[in-house]
Amino acid sequence: MEDKLDQDLILELQAGDLDALGDIYDRHRYLVYRTALAITCDPDMAADLLQEVFLRLHRFAERIDPSRPLQPWLYRMTVNLSYTWIKRKSRWTRYINDMAERIITERRPASPHNIAERDESWRWVRQAILALPVQQRMVVVLYYINDLSLKEIAEILEIPVGTVKSRLHYARRVLKKQLGTHREVLRTVFYDTTRSV
């Protein structure tokens, strides 16, 4: 699998080979899941989105141009679906979910998800992301978490580079306010512990 290029896998998928889809899934699942998670701030929704993105890849495989890189397509699909799902989730449902979440969290046994959610440091980060409007959040996630350039973000979101810059500028202001207050505390936690994908 490692030797095969995305291009070859897409061609195999277009020929009806499901194993090729499995290989693409294994290769890009981190990218899709973490992008969806960071935009939605909801691990369950991100897990559903991960499935949905690859289901769509299977459904629309014929329309994908194998000569072009696959990652931008995956990013675009993930970002668009995340945006749609967030908008679809109505406000009252969110309140009910949040309330249920609080009740369940008290009784739920510790799982990696719970640990991540309970940790006060992570909660600040989550709140900082949620403080951003969804469109700014998408730019922030692609820029800070996925390390994409402004030009790449502009192509994925199909907006001008200037718009990306302005969204990033305003988002940075909010993040400075939200994350900056915990900066000293967080620095001790995160200092020099960069991981790779």
Binding site: Y33, R34, P112, H113, A116, V125, V140, I145, R195
Partner: peptide, 8 residues
């Protein structure tokens, strides 16, 4: 942000 996302 990367560390937060990688915790899950």
């Amino acid at each position: 942000l990367k560390h937060w996302a990688f915790e899950f």
